[in-house]
Design a protein around this nucleic acid. Sequence first.
DNA 1: CCGTATTTGTTCGTATGTATT
DNA 2: CAATACATACGAACAAATACG
Lengths: 259, 259
Amino acid sequence: MADPMYRQIAEDLREQIESGDLRPGAQLPTEIELREHYGNASRNTVRDAIKWLTTRGLVVTQPGRGTFVVETITPFIVRLHTPLESKTFEEAVRQQGREPSVSQPRVEVQNADADVARELQIEKGSTVVIRHQQRFIDHSPSSLQTSYYPMEFVQLGAVALIQATDIPTGASNYVADMLGIAQVGYRDRLLVRSPNAGEIRFFRLLNTGTELVVGTHRTAYGHGHKPIRYTVTVYPADRNHFVIDFDEVPPLEDLVKDL
Amino acid sequence: MADPMYRQIAEDLREQIESGDLRPGAQLPTEIELREHYGNASRNTVRDAIKWLTTRGLVVTQPGRGTFVVETITPFIVRLHTPLESKTFEEAVRQQGREPSVSQPRVEVQNADADVARELQIEKGSTVVIRHQQRFIDHSPSSLQTSYYPMEFVQLGAVALIQATDIPTGASNYVADMLGIAQVGYRDRLLVRSPNAGEIRFFRLLNTGTELVVGTHRTAYGHGHKPIRYTVTVYPADRNHFVIDFDEVPPLEDLVKDL
DNA sequence: CCGTATTTGTTCGTATGTATT
DNA sequence: CAATACATACGAACAAATACG
């Protein structure tokens, strides 16, 4: 049995895109033109073909403008496995020749949900301090970071945690200094999922259903496997690569240069 | 202005799914029933609503059967950052209480494309040995692995690389033993993309356009940052988590247990 | 700023095909 | 084989966003 017509049209367009006949950013023929080109197929059939392509992330449509081949984005490299004497966000971004900026932190005090309780090894419902921050690269939304700390840390003296001001040395180092709890290791978990409404807004995603985010869940530990911090950072999957280095590898600049 | 009707229907169904009124695996009302429920909307409008949900990965439709809320899969944990004395695939899978198996390797000799040439730091077009292997967990397709080695290694004596038989100690250790090139570090790069036709077939994906794979690109280095091996492993994004450990962290079993 | 043409978005109706039960 | 349910395809009308003179 032959493929349905809308798939044949979609395949034909896909080949034109992948062969380079239709370059990134180029406008596809209008629905009327496509209709005429493919044996006077119905406009709805042509639209089904375009939908097939949009669902697979090959084209985007804009009302009143047209349908365009997606632009390829030069990805930013997110380094997950930095050494303990790690670079701050600002340093890491500048290293790739880009301009970092961050929002003022937003601080909340809430009860731990199941995820947070598991990662911080505390009772579900215990009080935790939550610090949110928005990060930008070249003034474009880059990532959303949410860190969870046990309320206990504030009571023990790390009071800056519940203040909505940037901690220049990094909240992690601040806790280490104030409480004498040094970070000796961490575990990152990555998972891919659909963005929620807030993420769609912040990252200015199109909400075509093809957009995805990568969540990196980092739990940092002190001596004796005691959790210090649980940080979730969310990145749009389309504009980021994730790099993990172990021991002796060439400098990151080589990779950035070669893309 | 109010949302279009198909979106209102989609939102209503989405809430039922996320609230748990419609559990994973449950069948949605048929298109005709939905049509009647939502003020005799056109069947096409109901179908637009369902399409909105399918592109977001919330439901799947099966011709002749119905539309069903997607089943949630218990993810396998892929450990990216194992120490150098790392576990084999078999050991890592058994550690999570699952049953591993692998295909016979398929070996090719080809010219390096731009990616491979960059990673192995050789001339584009140089001859490379490519070893493919299919991996299964509990007899389900789990990952596709492709490793690239410079042809030079075979000429220098590592002849088992071009034989289509499993190297029990691991190809990496074999190269180290035969040529005295020890692996002293590696860099992993992760990226999310749509699967190609072969991957859709092997992983038995539905090709709804929402299915995604995560590619892990590992370049292993010997002394002096000399590349030894470039390995691309492809995983379906929906059934895997990725974990990277650094220094002192609790045993992985704790995480697997708590899911 | 306005009006008009162009282009995609939404909604309906209808008919027929294909897969499953 | 029949009934049910989703898939494909067509045609039509109006709405909304955009571009342009």
